[in-house]
Amino acid sequence: MSEEQPNDPLHGVTLKDIVNFLVDCYGWKKLGRWTKIRCFVNNPTINSSLKFLRKTPWARTKVENLYLVTKRNQQNKPKRGG
């Protein structure tokens, strides 16, 4: 049963992909400052962050929302050149 989920922008995106994307975009320091999630501040690693986010729904929601806003902003940026 492989139905598309057109109303779910996170469909097919893993939590690991989301964290890696945000770290690449902002770095650990900004992530910690913006989200107020300690796993991004104290000795942050992908694995420790994933472990925390998987068992903490409010934190996961914050991270997913930041991902969606960041992706939307990237799509809405005007392209240079042309």
Rank of each mutant, 00 (worst) to 15 (best):
M1Y: 13
S2Q: 05
S2G: 10
S2H: 11
E4G: 13
E4N: 11
P6F: 08
N7A: 15
N7D: 10
D8C: 13
D8F: 13
L10V: 03
L10D: 04
L10C: 05
L10I: 08
L10E: 04
H11L: 09
H11I: 11
V13E: 10
L15P: 06
L15I: 05
L15K: 03
K16I: 07
K16W: 11
I18V: 07
I18M: 09
N20P: 09
F21W: 05
L22F: 13
L22P: 02
L22Y: 06
V23L: 00
D24S: 04
D24Q: 00
D24Y: 01
D24M: 04
C25F: 04
Y26L: 01
G27N: 01
G27P: 01
W28K: 00
W28Y: 00
K29M: 00
K30T: 12
K30R: 04
K30P: 01
K30Q: 08
L31I: 00
G32S: 02
G32T: 02
R33G: 04
R33H: 06
T35P: 02
T35A: 08
K36C: 08
K36L: 01
K36N: 10
K36V: 05
R38F: 11
R38H: 06
R38M: 11
C39M: 10
F40P: 05
V41I: 04
V41S: 00
N42E: 12
N42D: 11
N42P: 02
N43A: 00
N43H: 12
P44L: 03
I46P: 00
I46D: 00
N47D: 05
S48T: 15
S49N: 03
S49A: 04
L50I: 05
L50H: 01
K51A: 07
K51V: 07
K51G: 04
R54E: 05
R54A: 11
K55P: 05
K55M: 08
T56A: 03
P57Q: 13
P57S: 15
P57N: 07
P57H: 11
W58K: 12
W58P: 03
A59M: 12
R60C: 10
R60L: 08
R60M: 09
T61S: 07
K62F: 07
V63F: 08
V63D: 04
V63R: 08
E64I: 03
E64P: 12
N65M: 09
N65L: 06
Y67K: 07
Y67Q: 05
L68V: 09
V69W: 07
T70D: 10
R72C: 06
R72M: 13
N73V: 12
N73P: 03
Q75G: 13
Q75R: 09
Q75L: 15
Q75N: 15
N76Y: 12
N76Q: 10
N76T: 14
K79W: 09
R80F: 15
R80I: 10
G81F: 14
G82L: 15
